[in-house]
Amino acid sequence: MPPSSPDGGRAAKRVDTRRSASQTSLSAPPTSLVARALGRLGGMLLVMWGATTAGFIALRAIPGDPVDVMLGVTASVGESVRQQIRVEWGLDEPPVVQYFTVLGRLVTGELDSYQLRQPVMTVIADQAMPTLQLTGLALVFALGLATVGILLARLPALRPMVSTFELALVSSPTFWIGLVLLAVFGYQLRWFPTAASAGLPALVLPALTLALPLTGIVSQVFRQGIGHAESQPFALTARARGISDVRLLSRHSLRHAAGETLTLSGYLVGSLLGGAVLVETVFARQGLGAVTVRAILGRDLPMVLALIALAAAVFAVINLLVDLLVARIDPRVRMAG
């Protein structure tokens, strides 16, 4: 798996010859692409397995009886019933047997959540849509606002203001932004519904909450990318040819910066999913974030393992896509091989 952070990637490229060999193979002829994809798939499965195993060990180490979790705090249930539940869920088996049972069921999709009493796959499938809507709209907001920020920052007078604003956004806790938006636009102005209902209006504040910290980040990186691009020789050449500023920005620099921003995607998706946990809590929304918090707090081992495997898969796929896209958008990567 390639590094998800551009930093490590860059450092690795400079230093580690083993690593840089694999990086440059991006630009190898398309015939090797299938082989590479297969290799990646193998790596992805390996990562999923590793993450799931680590998760199993970690959660087994937690004190607390899963049966208590299933029953809830005020349940008046005798010991023989508890034993019955343990047998039913295979919790009386030795840990190694449990591990293989859980892994097997995870692969075949038969694993049931302790808390929700449903197959974990069903839960994930049901809860994925609200989270996808939230993160999708948040991404749209973030990119849109970042573009506005970049355009504003091109005016020298506004640059310090934009920069300060970005810093404030990056530095604020997501959940606090959510609470402030809720207080102002939900309770005071009543522009948006405060209840976690379906529909677009209810999605605006949560998505905005999730988008704002990202906006700061995307706009910073984008701006730096543009600055970097425009200090390159090709920009000078282009300017010397008499190309207009707007044209330089739209035809060259942005494209250049887009490549840099794309490598950030892994990080962005991570922020979105991590942020979704808090945003879904603040706005009492449904979704994978809310499911994750509940699964972790409730010691819902099957659910947590499924979510870990899902996260590992999502990140592996995103990294793969980013590598491919960067190679297509940014000509330098293609030439570099």
Binding site: S4, S5, A51, G270, L273, A311, F315
Partner: peptide, 21 residues
């Protein structure tokens, strides 16, 4: 590889799992 696996997860989720343990 282990570090890469860990870095694949959003930092906040990782902290959440650790605190659960």
């Amino acid at each position: 590889r282990s570090i890469e696996v860990l870095m694949a997860f959003p930092e906040f989720l990782l902290a959440l799992v650790v605190i659960a343990v």
